[in-house]
Write a protein that binds this DNA or RNA. Structure first.
Lengths: 121, 121
DNA sequence: CTTACTGCAAATCATTTGCACATTT
DNA sequence: AAATGTGCAAATGATTTGCAGTAAG
């Protein structure tokens, strides 16, 4: 069972600390942008939004942070053909994404036992 | 409403002709591979399968043909994060057999640790 | 101080496209 | 012959990663 989701941007720092991550300006800015977004922004849109708060935010950091959030079940991506993936907070409502999150959890679990998952065939 | 879907590989040539496309060996091979596939192959898998019938089939042609099929509503792709898109004939259906199998496996794994799966939200 | 984070640029990976040649009608 | 299709390789676009410098705890 994953950790509880921060209810507001203000809770992020403690949440990050709990999972061994540091609270930095770019991360707070990215989180806020994602938190405030009404739709599902893509990485570039998030970078632009975050830069309005923390101008030094770079695209690489956006992608890195989003991936980390996803691995902790805090955010999820929706891949779109021929376009950048779109991101949202929390788990995806879609079954395939739910499966991916579940698989990721199993992968993490397996890792705790010294194993990793590889494609069957 | 798009044109009717060919029931079998043999119907492809006339279908292609109807929409102004030519029936060629690579296309027939790709179609057959997609038609025979039980799961949702990606472009590379389709290329390998098609090459067993028509060795000259190239990846570029696979992608081109798949895109054309999709534009005519004959096939559809399911984009997957960090992986090649998966293709199938006809319109997309949400839950695939593979997803269900994955969930079942997760359920079994969870059960082994004394848990059971419940809907997220 | 030690370890984690960042920007930047180069590297990857899937997919597309330009082009000269081959094939279908 | 005219119009399409094809292979190949180079181009693109999204995402990742290596690295040397910065900052958080």
């Amino acid at each position: 069972m994953p950790e509880a989701l921060p209810a507001a941007p203000a809770d992020l720092p403690q949440w990050l600390a709990r999972v061994g991550m540091r609270a930095t300006p770019p991360r707070l800015a990215i989180w806020q942008a994602l938190h405030d977004a009404k739709d599902e922004p893509d990485a570039v849109e998030l970078m632009v939004l975050a830069q309005q708060v923390e101008p030094r935010t770079s695209l690489g950091t956006v992608y890195r942070f989003l991936r980390e959030l996803e691995q902790h079940g805090l955010a999820s991506s929706r891949p779109v053909a021929h376009q950048r993936s779109r991101w949202r907070l929390g788990a995806s409502t879609e079954s395939s994404a739910r499966n991916e999150a579940a698989l990721a959890a199993v992968a993490r679990l397996a890792a705790a036992f010294g194993y990793r998952l590889v494609p069957a065939a």
